[in-house]
């Protein structure tokens, strides 16, 4: 990074540290914080979409669709999240490969499961064994996003289902008396009004999502936990920057990062709650009205 970094062994004190903290691997480490933020920013809307779908399905009048919605919310309740993460990544991967296998190699004779092996034809492999490194990484990351979205979608579905039920009955009756259909009532009355009821649950979910991001490490993505272990470990003198086991300090850094993220989210969500309470027939909304007049 800096010009004086060419010979690390001659450096001392602060200049050593400044060179150490700007090596290529450290740059990748800093970049992986971006990976975590990207995961959060992509997962949150997708999970919200899944949750909306799940909640709508759970309210449906069509029986199989309702069962699907109820089942989707039920899976998330009894089982540890980490088991989900380990399960879905392999299961989704195999499902995609199996589907491609069926389409691309219809005349394949052997069974897909041979004892302990899962075998699909070569051109159905995902990603193709000939593709570049970044394709492999991108595929791993998108599997992780999909897994997070499925699991958190189930929780969002629980929250949104409750919020839809919480919209005051009088509002829906008014809509019915105006002759609105079920669909119109849903889109024009329930959906715009449910957000204030969903917000406490959704902000709780956001906090949980933040705290779930280190699980990326278990899904094989090179995230901050991976790099903290990698960089912090004991480096003997064959490395250019030898140091003892510093993993404790790296993990302390991660702890501070997460605490900061939590604090910032708390402040932003507090403001959002105040904004959404405006004009609502709730205690918070009433208090705002009184304060203004």
């Amino acid at each position: 990074m800096f010009s004086y970094c060419s010979d690390p062994s001659s450096l001392q004190g602060l200049s050593w540290l400044s060179c150490y903290l700007t090596t290529g691997k450290h740059m990748l480490f800093y970049g992986s914080f971006g990976t975590v933020i990207a995961l959060l920013l992509v997962t949150a809307p997708v999970a919200l979409l899944f949750g909306f779908g799940g909640a709508t399905a759970a309210r449906s009048h069509i029986v199989p669709l309702r069962w699907f919605g109820k089942g989707y919310t039920a899976i998330a309740r009894g089982i540890p999240d980490i088991a989900f993460f380990l399960f879905f990544v392999i299961a989704l991967d195999q499902a995609f490969e199996w589907m491609r296998h069926k389409v691309k190699c219809p005349d394949w004779e052997e069974p897909v499961r041979q004892g302990n092996d899962f075998v699909v034809c070569k051109i159905a492999k995902l990603p193709l064994s000939s593709s570049a490194q970044w394709v492999h990484e991108a595929y791993g990351f998108s599997l992780a996003v999909l897994t997070f979205s499925i699991v958190f979608g189930a929780f969002a579905a629980i929250v949104l289902y409750g919020a839809m039920q919480a919209v005051p009955r009088a509002q829906i009756e008014t809509a019915e008396s105006y002759g609105m259909t079920r669909r119109q009532t849903f889109w024009r009355i329930i959906v715009p009004q449910m957000w204030i009821f969903a917000l406490p649950g959704l902000s709780n979910l956001w906090m949980i999502l933040i705290k779930a991001t280190p699980l990326l490490f278990l899904l094989g993505v090179e995230d901050i936990v991976y790099w903290a272990r990698e960089l912090g470990g004991l480096k003997t003198s064959i490395y250019s920057y030898p140091h003892p086991d510093w993993r404790l300090w790296y993990f302390l850094g991660l702890l501070v990062f997460y605490l900061g993220l939590t604090r910032v989210s708390e402040i932003i969500l507090g403001r959002l709650t105040a904004r959404l309470s405006r004009g609502q027939a709730t205690i918070a909304g009433n208090n705002q009205r009184k304060a203004a007049s």
């Binding site: 936990v225 991660l254 605490l259």
Partner: peptide
Amino acid sequence: RGSPLFIQFFL
């Protein structure tokens, strides 16, 4: 409460 249990275990 503000940090992941995962990180707490590592630390």
